[in-house]
Structures are given as C-alpha cells and as structure tokens.
Amino acid sequence: MNDNEHDYHDEAEEIRAETAAGAPELAEHDRVGELEKALEEANSKALYAAAEQQNTRRRLEKEMADAKTYASAGFARDMLAIKDNIERALAAVTDELRADQTAANFLAGIEATARELESVFARNGVERVASKGLPLDPHRHQAMIEIPSDEEPGTIIEEMQAGYVLKDRLLRPALVGVAKKP
C-alpha cells in the first residue's frame, strides 16, 4: 500500500467513525433491522416446529387407530383355516350319514359351531370376498386356473377357496378359476 492509498484508507475510517458518532440513529436502525430479521427467522422456525409436531401427532394417532383396528388380523387369518376345515367336513357328509340319528346330532353340533364362527367373524369385521360371477380383481382374487367357457374372459366361474377381508384390509385372497375363450 503506498502513502496515498494509506491516507485515503485512514480518511475513510475517520468519516465512518464521524458518521456513526454523528448519526447513532442509523446504527440503531441497522440493529433494529437485524433484530427484526432474527425475530422473523425465529418465528418461522417456531411455526415449522409446531407444524412438524402436529403432523407427528396425527401420524401417531393414525398408527394407533390402525393398530387397534387390525390387531386381530393374525388371529383372524389363523381362524380361517379352522373355518375351512369345518366347511370341508360338512361338505363331505353324505345324505346317508345325515339320515342316521346319532350322526345327525353330531352334525348339528358341527353346523352350530360353523354358524357361531361366522357370527364371530361378522361381529369383528371379517367378511367373505365376493367372487363368483365377478371380474377378476387382483387385489382380492388369485387366479389359479383358466377354464374354457362361454363367459366373458376374466370372469370368475369357480371359487376353490374363499377369500376374506378384515374391515378394508385383505386377510386372504380368494383362490379362483377364471373364464377363457374356448
């Protein structure tokens, strides 16, 4: 730095010092502006934190409600196997066996158990998935075979195993046979 530049630099410092001393309101105005900006940033951060907290609370409330609603899904899925076995047992009973009084009493007990199980499912929101005669819905049905038929291709014409939902959630898809062109 040469002497001229040095003198110029010193003069600029003196002017700044005089201006700050002579106009404290300007320095104060700058300070107020900085404080307002800092306050605005703090308010913005507080609003963001409050919104984030509210979103977290809502998400947790929904998760708790879902957990309560679908807590029995595993149990209901396990009970479906029992229901299937009861239905298979009843389907295998011949007319001859139904005519026998001892067997008829035994079958009446099994049928009552099947009705009670169906009633328990209904009270707890477990419903059978409609399938026969409907178009294949991959969210509710699982196509196992294609069967040549005069029906519209993709229409369910046979149900091999019933599907079930708990409220609106699929427990088990229906295993079905769908129509195809002959």
Rank of each mutant, 00 (worst) to 15 (best):
residue 1 M to R: 10
residue 2 N to H: 10
residue 2 N to S: 13
residue 5 E to T: 15
residue 6 H to Y: 12
residue 7 D to W: 15
residue 15 I to D: 05
residue 16 R to F: 14
residue 19 T to N: 06
residue 21 A to E: 12
residue 22 G to W: 05
residue 25 E to L: 09
residue 29 H to I: 08
residue 29 H to P: 00
residue 41 E to Y: 01
residue 42 A to V: 08
residue 42 A to G: 03
residue 43 N to I: 02
residue 45 K to R: 14
residue 45 K to L: 14
residue 51 A to T: 12
residue 55 N to W: 04
residue 57 R to Y: 07
residue 62 K to Y: 08
residue 72 S to R: 05
residue 73 A to N: 13
residue 73 A to W: 11
residue 73 A to G: 06
residue 76 A to Q: 09
residue 77 R to P: 00
residue 77 R to F: 13
residue 81 A to E: 13
residue 81 A to G: 08
residue 84 D to G: 05
residue 84 D to P: 09
residue 86 I to G: 09
residue 87 E to H: 04
residue 89 A to N: 02
residue 92 A to W: 06
residue 93 V to R: 02
residue 95 D to W: 00
residue 99 A to K: 14
residue 99 A to P: 06
residue 100 D to G: 10
residue 105 N to Y: 10
residue 107 L to G: 00
residue 108 A to Y: 04
residue 109 G to F: 01
residue 111 E to W: 05
residue 114 A to C: 04
residue 119 S to N: 15
residue 119 S to G: 14
residue 119 S to T: 14
residue 124 N to V: 00
residue 125 G to L: 05
residue 126 V to I: 15
residue 126 V to S: 05
residue 127 E to D: 10
residue 131 S to C: 07
residue 134 L to C: 01
residue 135 P to Q: 11
residue 137 D to T: 03
residue 137 D to H: 02
residue 137 D to I: 02
residue 137 D to W: 00
residue 138 P to T: 13
residue 139 H to F: 06
residue 142 Q to S: 12
residue 145 I to C: 03
residue 146 E to P: 02
residue 148 P to A: 10
residue 149 S to M: 03
residue 150 D to I: 01
residue 151 E to V: 03
residue 152 E to C: 02
residue 156 I to R: 00
residue 156 I to M: 00
residue 157 I to N: 08
residue 160 M to K: 09
residue 161 Q to L: 05
residue 164 Y to P: 05
residue 166 L to C: 00
residue 166 L to E: 03
residue 167 K to T: 09
residue 173 P to V: 00
residue 173 P to F: 01
residue 175 L to T: 04
residue 175 L to W: 04
residue 176 V to P: 05
residue 176 V to C: 04
residue 176 V to F: 01
residue 179 A to L: 05
residue 181 K to W: 02
